[in-house]
Amino acid sequence: MVFRSVHYSYPLSNQEALSGVDLSISEGERVAILGENGAGKTTLLKHMNGLLRPTKGFVEIEGVDTRKAKTYEIARKVGMVFQNPNHQFFAQTCWDEVAFALRNFGYAEEEIAKRTEAALRDFGLWEYKDESPFLLSSGEKKRLSIASVMVYDPSVLVLDEPTAGQDAGQKRRIGEMLSTFKGKAVIVSTHDMEFAVKHFPRTIIISRGRVVVDGPTREVFYGEYWASAGLLEPQVVALAKALGMTAKPITAQEFVKAFEEAVAK
């Protein structure tokens, strides 16, 4: 996926939501996008599956310019999971919700049945196959929304704030689930620094429609971008900096290990 000086303004808005974004994401990469509310995260994500097209510049998905492709062609390569599952669900049962995309893409009934069952089982939702998606808990809804995208095997998965409103256990499950998608690029927007650190080796911070920094998560977390991007420095980073540690831990476990090693020296 390649973005070249991408600009975007919403209709009737005199302010740019994206002002010259350049980035490229390779096959199988794991990327977290951070930024305060209104920074342009969701607008950026919507360019990744053709829901929005640049007003200036271009986006290429697997070599195809999104301005010249049909939305359904892009959607097949790039699956998108929205922040609020309630905005995405419409079927009467979880089974139909997951089978929907496959039917849409014209798969044979036999194949649809096979894949839908596998997806529901993989995501721990088989027991709810005949129930309404709207009756699930918030964690189950999130899993269903991911299942209904993963079922058609896109090569890129884009998730908007997958951990918003999720509890600690569900966050861990979502993180573990994403890491099983071998070979697929996974891109998330998130406010959750700990989630970004644990599962995403590359981090992009955006602010006012521009990329502020794009690099290895550890280096980004030890940069001086937090205040200017309207974000809070993670506790582990703040602590390590205040203690003048030379190691750059980004998780509690790394911190403890680095601390013990420093003391041992």
Binding site: D167, A168, P234, V236, L239, A252, F255, F259, E260
Partner: peptide, 15 residues
């Protein structure tokens, strides 16, 4: 893994 405990407390607990 039941509630989100602040990292500083997790670190201090282990130390």
């Amino acid at each position: 893994d039941i509630i989100e405990v602040p990292d500083v407390l997790v670190i201090a607990d282990q130390l």
